[in-house]
Simulated scan of single mutants.
Amino acid sequence: MGNAVAIDNSLAAIAAKVDKGIRIDAEDARWLWKNASDSDLCSLASTVRNRFHAPNACTYMVMRIVNYTNVCVAQCDYCAFYKLPGASGGYVLSQEEVFAKLDELLALGGDLAAFNGGFNPQLPLDYYCDLFASIRERYGDSIEFYALTIAEFLYLADHAKLSLPEAAARLKAAGVRWITGGGSEILTEDFRARHSKFKYTVAEYFQAQRAIVEAGLKTTATMVIGFDETLDERLEHLERTRNFQDETGGLASFLCWTFKPYFTQIGGIEITTAEYLRHLALSRIYLDNIPRIRTSVLTQNERALDGLRFGADDFDLPIEDEVTQKAGATINLDFERILNYASELGFTPEYRHVAGSPA
Rank of each mutant, 00 (worst) to 15 (best):
R292D: 03
I338L: 15
L308A: 13
F191Y: 05
G328A: 13
V48Y: 00
D190T: 11
R337E: 01
G356T: 05
D246K: 14
L41Q: 07
G268W: 08
P55V: 02
I319A: 08
A133I: 03
M61W: 00
A312W: 00
A281D: 10
G181S: 10
S196Y: 02
R234E: 01
A100Q: 09
G21C: 14
H279M: 15
E189T: 02
G216T: 13
T201G: 11
I293S: 05
D313M: 08
R294C: 09
A329Q: 05
N70C: 12
Y78L: 15
I269D: 07
G249Q: 02
D38K: 07
P124M: 07
Y146N: 09
G118M: 13
T273G: 09
W257D: 06
T248N: 05
L32Y: 04
G226V: 04
A107G: 06
G249R: 03
V48M: 09
G140W: 04
R240P: 00
W178E: 03
S94P: 03
F198I: 06
H159F: 09
R234C: 12
S10L: 02
L235F: 06
C129R: 14
D313Q: 07
R240C: 05
S39A: 15
F99E: 14
G118V: 04
G90P: 06
D130S: 15
F153T: 01
V71N: 02
H237P: 01
A327R: 04
D28K: 02
K172T: 01
W31F: 15
E344L: 14
Y205S: 06
N3T: 07
G21M: 12
K172I: 02
L345C: 04
D158Y: 09
T219W: 04
A151N: 07
V224I: 15
Q122R: 06
Y341H: 14
Q245K: 08
R30C: 11
